[in-house]
Amino acid sequence: MTIGFVAAVRNAMLDAITTQTGGSAKLRIYAGTRPATGGAETTVLAELTCNATFAPAASGGVLTLNSITSAAASASGTATWARLLKSDGTTIIADMSVGTSGADLNLNSTALSSGATVSVTSATITAGNP
Rank of each mutant, 00 (worst) to 15 (best):
S101D: 09
G39E: 04
V98Y: 09
A73V: 02
A103Y: 12
S122A: 15
L63F: 03
D95M: 07
G102Y: 11
L107K: 04
A75H: 02
N129T: 15
S119F: 00
K26T: 07
S113P: 00
S87E: 08
N108W: 07
G4K: 14
L105Q: 10
D15N: 15
T42C: 07
N51E: 05
L65E: 10
V44P: 06
L45N: 08
T53K: 06
T126V: 13
K86R: 15
T21L: 15
A7Q: 12
N108Y: 03
N11Q: 00
S101M: 10
A123S: 10
L105P: 01
T117C: 01
G22L: 09
S113G: 01
A116L: 03
L105K: 03
A82F: 15
T90D: 06
I17W: 10
T124H: 00
A111N: 14
A55F: 00
V120T: 10
I3W: 15
T124Y: 02
A8R: 07
G4E: 14
V62F: 03
N108S: 15
V44T: 14
L85H: 00
A12N: 09
G89L: 09
S24Y: 02
T124S: 11
L112G: 04
I17A: 01
A57R: 12
G32N: 09
M96C: 12
G128K: 04
T21D: 00
E41L: 09
A31W: 07
R83M: 10
T91M: 10
A127T: 00
T33M: 07
T37H: 03
T43I: 06
Q20I: 07
T121H: 06
I3E: 14
L14Y: 02
A25P: 00
R83F: 04
G99K: 11
S59V: 14
A16T: 11
S59H: 04
K26D: 08
A8I: 04
A72Q: 09
A82M: 11
T64D: 01
A123C: 13
A116K: 05
L84I: 11
V98G: 07
V62W: 03
S97G: 15
L63W: 01
A40R: 09
A25Q: 07
A40I: 12
G38Y: 03
G115A: 04
D88K: 03
A103T: 06
A123Q: 14
A72L: 07
T126G: 13
G39W: 10
A12R: 12
I92F: 00
A116Q: 11
D88S: 06
M1N: 11
A16G: 11
A116W: 01
A116G: 05
T2R: 14
G23K: 00
G99A: 11
L27K: 01
T110A: 08
L48M: 10
V44M: 13
S24F: 01
V118Q: 02
G77I: 08
V62P: 01
A82C: 15
S97K: 10
M96I: 12
V118T: 04
D15L: 05
S59F: 00
S122K: 12
T19E: 14
T121G: 15
S24E: 11
G23C: 06
V44A: 08
L65C: 14
A75P: 02
R28I: 09
G4N: 15
T126I: 11
A25N: 03
S87Y: 02
T78Y: 01
R10F: 05
S59T: 13
G61C: 08
A36F: 11
